[in-house]
């Protein structure tokens, strides 16, 4: 049964049919959310919030885009709202960084010539997540949809309501920014 058929039935009062859409899209919405919050519990809560919001706004879905594009937009907006709410923590982190107290968190220097051999420590994870979190919003959305969801630039452009060229530029700038943010913690001994 196609998404539009399911939506029609839900709108006619078959509320339980919405379960089909939840089962179909829960994994991709969860992955998108985890790209923003990096935490299973928060991603679970956000996924729930996204589907409830989608259900409540279903009558406003005009079918001009795919249901997946529409629900991705809801997921991105909900995730951005969530991270904005916790922006205070990031500001504190930046103050910490400006004061130079972040030196103690430098990544351990690489002993190996082959980066494949490196084990990912908790510090590595922390700094990669922090680097993603510090990206400007549009770059962050583009990189999350690209890296966590493997979406094409065309799909990302539809979700972000922009051109493919703009998405390509956003992704390139995001990658350059991520490298810049990670490079101070990646000095060879």
């Amino acid at each position: 049964m196609s998404d539009s058929d399911v939506i029609k039935q839900v709108l006619q009062g078959e509320r339980d049919m919405f379960r089909l859409l939840v089962e179909r899209y829960q994994h991709m919405i969860f992955r998108t959310c985890i790209g923003f919050v990096h935490n299973k519990e928060d991603a679970d809560d956000l996924t729930q919030e996204v589907f409830i919001q989608a259900f409540q706004s279903l009558s406003g879905f005009k079918g001009n885009s795919n249901f997946s594009t529409w629900i991705y937009r809801i997921a991105v907006n909900a995730s951005l709202n969530k991270v904005r709410r916790s922006a205070g923590a990031i500001i504190l982190q930046r103050i910490d960084s400006l004061l130079g107290t972040d030196k103690e968190h430098r990544l351990p220097a690489s002993d190996s010539e082959n980066p494949e051999d490196l084990l990912i420590g908790e510090e590595h994870r922390k700094w990669v997540r922090s680097a993603i979190d510090q990206l400007p919003e549009k770059q962050r959305v583009a990189i999350v949809l690209s890296k966590y969801e493997d979406l094409s630039q065309k799909q990302i452009a539809e979700i972000m309501n922009t051109s493919e060229g703009a998405v390509e530029a956003l992704i390139q700038r995001a990658k350059a920014n991520l490298r810049k943010k990670l490079s101070p913690f990646w000095k060879k001994s």
Partner: peptide
């Protein structure tokens, strides 16, 4: 090396 690290952390989360 940074790209590899980034991909590994993202793949872990995925």
């Amino acid at each position: 090396a940074q790209t590899q690290l980034l991909n590994r952390v993202i793949n872990e989360e995925r």
